[in-house]
């Protein structure tokens, strides 16, 4: 990019405002810190919240990985990565988790464990878990402050009455440090336990809703559940009771995407493309 554009696109005032919000987000785990969310040269809803966090954090020594639904090659990830490369001269990008210092993601937490020297930035469409039970933001802010989540628990209870189980597949409400309940962004249930006592700092950015929140490292994160109806993750066992495997790498431990191939067969494949490739490399030496 030519002259006239600041390193990391945002001006220094915008970065400082995001930086101040990030610090408060870390100090009050799970609390949604409001911020101004500047206009970005892309539509809100394309990951502008996560992108602004990445741009406020990034420096020339960073190596960035951008993923969308576990893949480094899907449209959202490719375009965000290109934008970061274009506006942050000197930084490096990678698809390998182990090489990355900053990881921006949409809809997944990487399959392999994060390290303490990495920061995960998640793009968030709807930051407030209470929005399904309370339309007024003023009232939601007070409910969050008082940690009053009774109406959310009633909603989950109603699910159990109607369907015999909690029917939330992603964006599973999760309680951080025994106080605030967050919407952990549209990660599957499978990824929710990774928030608990994570080694890495996890930051959440909602650009359209203008909120930043955080789960600090080594911080308790408990998915909302009942004593007699414990939280459970996705079940990948087939009709014979065996754990399904990825058709590419054969892993029986990863989160799988289900799709129909050209022959009309139902097939399963790792959602995390980097993990899948690393497993295949290991198998082939």
């Amino acid at each position: 990019m030519s002259n006239g554009i600041n390193f990391a696109f945002l001006d220094e005032y915008a970065k400082r405002e995001i930086r101040r919000s990030v610090i408060k987000a870390i100090c009050i785990p799970g609390y949604q810190v409001p911020y101004s969310s500047r206009e970005m040269p892309m539509g809100r809803g394309f990951g502008t919240g996560g992108l602004q966090l990445t741009l406020a954090l990034i420096g020339v020594t960073d190596t960035v990985k951008v993923i969308d639904q576990g893949s480094d090659d899907s449209v959202n990830a490719v375009n965000l990565r290109k934008f970061i490369e274009m506006t942050c001269p000197g930084i490096a990008t990678t698809t390998r988790l182990q090489e990355a210092t900053l990881i921006q993601s949409r809809h997944r937490i990487p399959e392999q464990a994060l390290r303490a020297d990495q920061i995960l930035v998640l793009q968030v469409p709807y930051p407030d878990a209470l929005v399904i039970v309370e339309p007024s933001e003023d009232k939601r802010k007070v409910m969050h402050g008082e940690a009053d989540y009774s109406r959310l628990l009633v909603k989950l209870y109603e699910d159990i009455v109607k369907f015999d189980e909690i029917t939330i597949s992603h964006r599973y409400p999760t309680r951080i440090n025994d106080h605030y309940i967050i919407d952990p962004s549209p990660i599957p249930r499978y990824d929710v336990p990774k928030l608990h006592n994570s080694k890495a700092l996890i930051l959440f950015g909602a650009g359209r809703e203008k909120k930043i929140y955080a789960v600090p490292p080594h911080c308790p994160a408990e998915p909302l559940a009942f004593d007699d109806v414990p939280f459970r993750i996705e079940d990948f066992t087939d009709s014979r009771g065996e754990r399904r495997a990825c058709k590419l790498c054969g892993s029986q431990e990863s989160f799988l995407d289900e799709f129909i191939d050209e022959q009309g067969e139902r097939v399963y494949q790792c959602s995390d493309s980097d993990y899948c490739e690393q497993q295949q490399e290991l198998a082939h030496g």
Partner: peptide
């Protein structure tokens, strides 16, 4: 700006 970015990462690390 370059110093402030690096310093900010130290502040993030400290608060984390």
């Amino acid at each position: 700006a370059e110093f402030q970015q690096a310093a900010f990462r130290c502040v993030v690390e400290a608060f984390s």
